[in-house]
């Protein structure tokens, strides 16, 4: 997975101090990517949310308890991408032109090995065939095809938008696209502008500079997968908890 520094490597920087956990990114993502509404029996563990806002708590009791929200989508790992190497039939590809880890649902046969491999739980299996209320299929995004049950899908930084931006640039005779031309749905929908998006290979880009900020951290950085999604927080406890994972979270059992 050689990184070609001449081609863009898209990344995201999320300011968790600004994130209010409203969930706009989650629904905007679902609208953009034609993710269906939940089956009545779906749960937190079987639902499909390419972008999922999770709550990170400081672990203290009321009223000292504080929390921030971490919008976690595919972290677009740059090296040793855990899901790319495990897929038996090349249904996951690392696009060297954009740094985006792409899932090809039509090639996926639903073994869910990649779901197991992803430490960020950013991959979602279609436990049900997608169903939209009658007529609502008219609101589907023409740029993204729908998926059937039994395949895995995940965030691809709204790859359809990248292609549209590239096509537009090509039509105008440009070879590169500006950061503003290509923003994933989550970033566009964020009401507090907590989500920054752009080209990490460009040292002058917004995300490039923010990613080098001392407030920046990444999830499970030590695994060496070089995620391209950064988080920003000024709060020390957030950094402390993210660094010292296993000791804090074993507080209770998940439901299910």
């Amino acid at each position: 997975m050689e990184t070609n520094h001449t081609s863009p490597r898209y990344g995201m920087v999320i300011d968790v101090d600004r994130c209010t956990g409203c969930g706009n990114c989650m629904v905007a993502c679902a609208v953009e990517n034609n993710v269906p509404p939940a089956d009545p029996k779906a749960t937190e563990r079987t639902g499909t949310t390419w972008m999922r806002v999770s709550k990170l708590e400081n672990g203290l009791p009321f009223p000292e308890n504080r929390s921030v929200y971490l919008p976690v989508s595919c972290q677009q790992c740059d090296h040793h991408t855990p899901c790319v190497s495990v897929c038996p039939q090349n249904a996951v590809e690392y696009d060297t032109e954009s740094g985006i880890v792409a899932q090809i649902p039509v090639r996926c046969f639903g073994c869910r090995y990649c779901v197991t491999a992803c430490p960020y739980h950013a991959r979602y299996y279609n436990w049900w065939d997608p169903v939209w209320p009658e007529g609502m299929e008219k609101t589907l995004n023409p740029d993204v095809s729908t998926r059937m049950r039994g395949v895995v899908e995940k965030c691809n930084f709204c790859h359809g938008r990248l292609q549209a931006a590239r096509a537009k640039a090509a039509a105008e005779g440009r070879r590169t696209i500006a950061d503003a031309e290509y923003v994933p749905a989550c970033g566009e929908s964020c009401p507090t502008h907590a989500i920054h998006f752009g080209n990490l290979s460009d040292p002058n880009s917004d995300v490039s500079m923010l990613s080098k900020d001392k407030r920046a951290f990444r999830l499970l950085e030590e695994l060496g997968t070089e995620p391209k999604v950064y988080f920003l927080s000024e709060q020390d406890w957030v950094h402390a908890i993210v660094k010292n994972k296993i000791s804090t979270e074993l507080k209770g059992h998940g439901n299910g």
Partner: peptide
């Protein structure tokens, strides 16, 4: 509301769904 709001409640637990309640751990 749109059925797609299941993303922020039923499918993620980000917000309470109908028939759910917050309870303090103690």
């Amino acid at each position: 509301v749109s059925p797609l709001l299941s993303k922020v409640s039923q499918e993620s637990g980000l917000r309470l769904s109908l028939r759910q309640a917050y309870v303090n751990p103690a």
